[in-house]
C-alpha cells in the first residue's frame, strides 16, 4: 500500500488503519474459508440428504460445508485483533507459471510434445526478472528431448514428438 500523500504532508493514520483492517491476512483467510464453506453448503443442498441410517450423498458435504464456514467465521472474528498485513501476491510469477501450464495443455496434442515443452519452458521463464533467455534456450535444448525420452520412449506415454497440422 502506498502511504497517504495529501493532508499538508502529514500521514493520515486513521484512514490507513481502516484500510489495513480489511487487508489483514487472517481476516482474508477466514473470509475465504467462509465463502468456500457457504458455496459447499449451497451446492450440497441440491443433493439428497437421506436419513441418519441411510445417508444420501448430500449429508457429508453439507456437514463439511458447515465446518468450513464456521471455522472461517471463527478465524475471521479472531483476526480482528491480528495485525499481520495481507501477503503481497507474486502476480507475474503466478501468471507466467499457470499460463505456461495452460499453453502446454492446449498445444501438447496440436503441436506435439517437443514444441509444447519448449513453449512451456519459455513462458514459465518469463516469471523471473530479468528474463534469462540464454538459460531458457539451454534448458529447452536439454530438457525437452530428455523429457520426451523419459516419458514417451521409456514410459510409453502416447504423445507425438511433433504433430504439425494434426487436427
Amino acid at each position: 500500500m502506498t502511504r497517504a500523500q495529501g493532508g499538508f504532508g502529514r500521514p493520515q493514520p486513521r484512514r490507513e488503519d481502516a484500510m489495513n483492517a480489511l487487508l489483514r491476512k487472517d481476516l482474508l483467510a477466514g473470509l475465504a474459508a467462509l465463502a468456500l464453506g457457504a458455496a459447499v453448503v449451497w451446492i450440497s443442498l441440491d443433493y439428497r440428504l437421506g436419513t441418519p441410517a441411510r445417508m444420501g450423498p448430500g449429508m457429508f458435504p453439507l456437514a463439511l460445508g458447515v465446518v468450513l464456514s464456521l471455522s472461517g467465521l471463527g478465524a475471521a472474528l479472531f483476526a480482528l485483533r491480528s495485525v499481520e498485513p495481507a501477503p503481497a501476491l507474486r502476480v507475474r510469477a503466478m501468471l507466467a507459471v499457470t499460463g505456461a501450464l495452460v499453453l502446454f495443455a492446449l498445444t501438447v496434442e496440436r503441436l506435439g510434445f517437443i514444441p509444447a515443452s519448449v513453449i512451456l519452458i519459455f513462458v514459465s521463464g518469463l516469471a523471473e526478472t530479468p528474463v534469462q533467455w540464454r538459460a531458457l534456450a539451454l534448458l529447452s535444448v536439454i530438457l525437452a528431448p530428455a523429457a520426451y525420452a523419459l516419458f514417451v520412449v521409456f514410459l510409453g506415454i502416447p504423445a507425438p514428438a511433433f504433430a504439425w497440422g494434426a487436427p
Partner: peptide, 21 residues
Amino acid sequence: YLFPAITLFIAIGCYSVANAP
C-alpha cells in the same frame, strides 16, 4: 534454473496420468 524444469515436470506428469490435457 530449476523452476522451468519443475514446471515442465508438473505439466508432463499430470498429462501422463490419463493422457488428458
